[in-house]
C-alpha cells in the first residue's frame, strides 16, 4: 500500500450519473477564529486561496478551502503536500489559538458526473439541490449519515463523508444513479 491509498481503492459505478471515488487529496481540518487575520494569512500561504464566505469554497494555486462552520475550514491540497501544508499552517499560527490536523485518511470522497447529478443527490439529501449554486458547500445528511456536498459545475458534484461509511455512501449513490431512476425535473 502506498501513501496514495484511498478507502475504496477507486471504485466506480456507471449509471445515468457516474459515481467514482475521487483521486486522492490531502485534507486538513483547521479550527480557529476565522476573523483573526492570521488564519486568513496562513491559509493563503499554504493554498493560495482566500478565506471563503460562509458555506463557500475558494481555490488557489496550491489548494482549495471549504467553509465547514463558523470556526472550521477544510483545506484540500495535493496528497504529497499534506505534511508540508500542515507544518506551514502550524508554524504560521504559532501563538494563535487553533487546531490543525491531517484528516485525509478519515474521509472518503466521491465525484458524480453527468447531467443528472443534482437529482441523484436530491434522492439522498434534504438540501435543495435544484438551487444549490456551484462552489457552495453543504454539510448535510446523506441517506443515514453525515456528509458534505457541492457542485463544481452543472455536471460535476462532489461528496465527502467519513471513510468508515464510504462503502455505504458509495452504494447509496450508485443505487440512486442506477439506470431507470431518472426523475427528470431539474
Amino acid at each position: 500500500m502506498s501513501d496514495l491509498a484511498t478507502p475504496l481503492n477507486g471504485r466506480r459505478a456507471v449509471g445515468y450519473v457516474t459515481v467514482s471515488e475521487d483521486a486522492p487529496r490531502g485534507m486538513i481540518s483547521l479550527r480557529g477564529d476565522l476573523s483573526d487575520g492570521g488564519i486568513a494569512e496562513a491559509v493563503r500561504a499554504v493554498t493560495g486561496a482566500n478565506l471563503p464566505e460562509p458555506l463557500g469554497l475558494t481555490a488557489g494555486e496550491a489548494g482549495q478551502v471549504a467553509w465547514m462552520s463558523p470556526d472550521e475550514l477544510l483545506l484540500f491540497v495535493a496528497p504529497n503536500q499534506t505534511t508540508d501544508a500542515l507544518t506551514g499552517l502550524r508554524s504560521r499560527l504559532e501563538g494563535v489559538h487553533h487546531l490543525a490536523l491531517d484528516v485525509t485518511d478519515m474521509r472518503a470522497a466521491f465525484r458524480l458526473e453527468g447531467r443528472g447529478v443534482r437529482e441523484v443527490l436530491a434522492k439522498v439529501t434534504p438540501v435543495d439541490m435544484q438551487t444549490l449554486a456551484p462552489d457552495t458547500v453543504r454539510r448535510t445528511r446523506l441517506a443515514q449519515v453525515a456528509g458534505a456536498v457541492w457542485l463544481s459545475d452543472e455536471e460535476t458534484a462532489h461528496v465527502v463523508c467519513f471513510s468508515s461509511v464510504g462503502t455505504y455512501v458509495f452504494d447509496v449513490l450508485a443505487t440512486s444513479a442506477a439506470p431507470g431512476g431518472e426523475v427528470g425535473v431539474f
Binding site: 462552520s69 463558523p70 472550521e72 453543504r138 454539510r139 448535510t140
Partner: peptide, 9 residues
C-alpha cells in the same frame, strides 16, 4: 438544538 448533520453547532 444542535445542527448535528451540518455545522455541528
Amino acid at each position: 438544538w444542535r445542527h448535528v448533520m451540518g455545522c455541528g453547532k
